[in-house]
Each structure stands twice: as structure tokens, then as C-alpha cells.
Design a protein around this nucleic acid. Structure first.
Lengths: 150, 150
DNA sequence: TTAGAAGCTAGAGTCCGGTCTAGATCAACA
DNA sequence: TGTTGATCTAGACCGGACTCTAGCTTCTAA
């Protein structure tokens, strides 16, 4: 039932360093209990919270925002609309980030496609090389790959 | 045709500091030309490259990886399979990142949904408050919201 | 001609999210 | 008993990606 810091590290995937760091940063709902010898004692709930926490982190929520959230939780019932607003704000951010990545991904795929074509056709040496200013011998022909790839 | 650093900053959205920094970091295909007075001269191609560059950055490509790519470009024709591989590697990373965000997003939406329900029903005070160890008065009832939200 | 804007360099500072170190204590086992 | 391994604290350090400062030069417009 009671877990040592090493055990929690193993189960949460965080380092013991990170767990102590998170505690200092106020990311636990409750103060971490100590044994009489000063060692930390964790409970299942802590591991569960760390799992959520890790999901939030992996979606780019900053430690500062997680701290805000857990502070609301710590204050107890009554501020649920605030927690909801915070979560919605992050939801919106993540959605925007996904759209941003998808936009960039389509640019990347476009470039990949062009390189695939050229490499496959063995015309690799006509690919984009942004030499500048264009010297006569590299002056792009009209419709040259320069415009396709840059 | 020739652009000053300030002009390029305005058009690329990067700061003049960032442009000098990028140059030091070797992120330009060609050495940036200088006027006789030492001032930098940029061309359209540089702005175009910076646009691509910014897309790559926004998708999480590190400056180190962008430098690798531009070094290949700088070496000239012949290494297109290498460029392709690098781009494909990043494509894969971005796809994985999108999946990660989508996974986290569904957790966030789940939590948002629960808070919405409870806030709407005015049952907000029964929401998850990971007090620990459970004291008699906060001992969760079987099927209490603790499991729904944690 | 002179004020203010823009540019230059070298290098320091910032923020984030940890990671690592030193030096001490403590527990468990052979 | 002694060694090994886990833990503790305070605080230094790190990498990435900029950002800013100081001190100087140079351009432009009134």
C-alpha cells in the first residue's frame, strides 16, 4: 500500500529526481508524507495522479499550468468551473497544436514526395540547391524543380 | 531585390537577433553576403528558405536537424537519398507526435466531460479531491466520482 | 550637421524542465 | 561488522532556443 520513492519512480516512469522536483514545484495535491526517518511515503492515488500528470505533460501542458490545476483541486470543492475552464483552455491549445502539426506535416510530405520522385527517377541532380545569386550554369529553367521544392 | 536584416525579420516573423543566431548556427544554405560596410544582405531565396525552416521548426524539428539538412543541401547534388531519409524520419516523428497529442486529448476531453456534467448538475462538490489517506468523512462511496475522474 | 534609427560583435542572460553531485544517513544482508 | 544500496538535502549544472546588453559604427532625414 505504501510506496517508496524508488517504487513510484519505477511505476510512473519518472526519475526519483523528477519526483522530488515535482514535489518542490507543488505538483502533488497533498503534501507527501514522511516516515519517521524522513523518507517519503506515497500511495496509489499519487501514482494515479502522476499518470494523469504525465498525460498532461505529454500534451504540452506546462508545469505552471498543472500547478494551477492542482492548486484548485487542493482548495477543495467549489471551484469546479475554474478547473473546467483551465482544462478547456488546454484542450483548445492541444487542438490548435495538432492542426499546426498537420499543416507542417503536409509541407513535409510534399517535400518527401518530390525527393521520392526525383530519387526514383534518378534525376536527383536537378533538385533544389538554393545557390544564390544564380550563376549562369545554375540558372533555373522555367518550370525547373526549384519552384517545386522551395 | 536585396533585403536588409530588418526587412527579412519583418517578412519572416523572426527577430533580427534570431536571424543572426540562425546564421551563427549554420542554418543558411549559403553564407550571408555582406555589404562593404559589414551589413548583411539577404535575397528572396533566403526568405523562402526561412519560411520552410519556420514550418520545420513549428513541427518540432530541432535546429540541429535543420542544420543537418541544410548541410546536405550545401554539399550539392548526389545526397538526395540522405535528404529524403532525414525528411522521412521527421515525418514519422511528427506523425507519432500527433498520435500522442490525440491520445492525451481524449483523456483531457474525458475530464472536461466529467466536469461539464457535474458543474451543469450542480453536483460539483462531489468531484474528485484526492485527499489521502481517506478520512471517514471523505471515504468514497462505492461508485463515487473518484473513479470517474482520477 | 546632427538626431535617431538601424546595424555590427561578443558575450551574458533567460526560461523550461529537468538532471546530477556532494555529502550525509539509514536499512538489510552476509 | 562491514559493505552495498536506497534515501535524504541543498544547490549546481545542462541543453535548447532564443533574447538581450554594451559599446560601437553607419545610414537617413530634417
Amino acid at each position: 500500500m505504501d510506496l517508496s520513492i524508488g517504487e513510484v519512480a519505477r511505476r510512473s516512469g519518472l526519475s526519483v529526481h523528477a519526483l522530488r522536483f515535482y514535489e518542490r514545484e507543488g505538483l502533488f495535491a497533498n503534501p507527501v508524507r514522511r516516515l519517521s526517518n524522513g523518507r517519503r511515503v506515497y500511495y496509489e492515488e499519487d501514482v494515479e495522479w502522476l499518470e494523469i500528470c504525465t498525460k498532461l505533460r505529454s500534451s504540452g501542458m506546462s508545469l505552471a499550468m498543472i500547478r494551477q490545476y492542482i492548486e484548485l483541486v487542493r482548495q477543495g470543492p467549489g471551484n469546479e468551473p475554474d478547473r473546467l475552464e483551465l482544462l478547456r483552455r488546454h484542450e483548445t491549445d492541444v487542438e490548435a497544436r495538432i492542426r499546426e502539426l498537420q499543416g507542417a506535416l503536409s509541407v513535409i510530405r510534399y517535400k518527401v514526395g518530390i525527393y521520392e520522385d526525383h530519387v526514383a527517377r534518378g534525376e536527383a541532380d536537378t533538385l533544389w540547391n538554393p545557390s544564390r545569386p544564380p550563376t549562369p550554369e545554375t540558372e533555373p529553367e522555367p518550370g525547373s524543380p526549384v519552384n517545386l521544392i522551395s
